[in-house]
Write a protein that binds this DNA or RNA. Sequence first.
RNA 1: GAGAUUGUAGCUCAGUUGGUUAGAGCGCCGGAUUGUGAUUCCGGAGGUCACGGGUUCAAGCCCCGCCUUUCUCCCCA
Length: 454
Amino acid sequence: MTKPALVRGTRDFGPAQMAKRNYIFDTIRQVFQRYGFAPLETPTMENLSVLMGKYGDEGDQLLFKVLNSGNFSEKLTETDWQEGYKKLTPKISEKGLRYDLTVPFARYVVMNRGELAMPFKRYQIQPVWRADRPQKGRYREFYQCDADVVGTDSLICEAEIVLMLHEVLRGLGLENFTVKINNRKVLSGIAEVIGALGQETTLCVAIDKLDKIGQEKVEAELRERGFSDETILKLQPIFKLGADHTTLFNDLRTWLATSEIGLNGITELEKVWQLVAQFGLQNPQMELDLTLARGLSYYTGAIFEVKANGVQMGSISGGGRYDNLTGTFGMPGLSGVGISFGVDRIYDVLEELGLFSENQAVSTQVMLTNFDEVAQSYGLNVLRQLREAGINAEIYPEATKLKKQFEYADRKHIPFVLIIGSEEIRTGQLSLKNLKTGEQQKTDLEQVKAILIQ
RNA sequence: GAGAUUGUAGCUCAGUUGGUUAGAGCGCCGGAUUGUGAUUCCGGAGGUCACGGGUUCAAGCCCCGCCUUUCUCCCCA
């Protein structure tokens, strides 16, 4: 016999955790559906040809690969082994676990293009896997909750993402958050204006770290990567511009006046603010954050990130617009925009802020005791009537000591125990005990149902 | 991929410079109480000290390897 253990970076979710997780999933799902997104599920495994090359070299390394079935080494030669794992891998593995939900989604859209109502709005809630080294808030198996729209450039999609973010988080009781927004075109404009066109990725990677490592270290990193002092000097406004979006838009227009793409980006951002206002969102918690870049290179327009304030936690949600996502599957020119909720982090935030309601874990409302065969037979009939009345009920499966039965109910946090013994059967007056208050009363079944339904 | 860190009962953790039989709290099981949980009292079970080597008369403790926990870097949301 071997000691059981979990695979590194994976977790079990017990009943108590599942109740909370389902509450988060349900909230997110409801909002997605209210906004017209349709559900989609894709297989756990994809062909490596679909996954490889979509996430960069690092990403390819982080893919879990599945060994071919059967005699995978049958056709291998001695030289195959000697050439190293990079050349060996494709010869023994052709499938991998999905790394995110966006690429499988793109694959699905391309394969079903003829049948989809465009623009296509889908949501997808499934686990993804990454062969990363686990650390805080980072696992090898975790859930993503994505909602994406493909097939339209309309900024209404961006605005609706902002609205959904507000609705989900407020629906979860999380009031203190900030939806940070930026636009890749503005970042391109900045690169153009400071004379670093073509080095946007380097610029973005560095700027993205601003709130983490500070201005000086960002400048140092840029210098190290070949940015001149003059270029860095021209970048200074990014560190100084205020947070108020109305004046910020004006200041930006002045700064990026010579960059057409930059001005386009500003216009897009303003439009999103305008659409959200037209919708009438109460008290929008949006912030234009020029330092928001995110690592993903495929974002081309809006960029989103959500920060829960008052807790030590990375972003709990992120997304953006990506043009041409389906291009690598032979379907160019399709623009998409999407958002992804990080359930695991939201869970931690809600836990830390004490925002889960207490009776989340309650499932069974009443447990029937089991004295002997006669009482059990009587109890089963009562049990049916309780369940027909919509009450979550169970009967203790064995006729053991009452003490043991009560302990079971107590450990399961079942609020009521219905005691059915010979006396109760004779009189029809059942004993209902409230385990929280310790009170016990004798009453008929109709009254029991009335009490439990409250 | 690099660095640090952790692992002892079901859980949380003690365990002295290497020294006889590895402990505590909680939990679990049984009883006090054959119709009443959470509180009380009594008793009991439970350990390959992560795993594999090595040093030593002697290893939970020292050395090497390996897995694992947590964290940082890289990277990624």
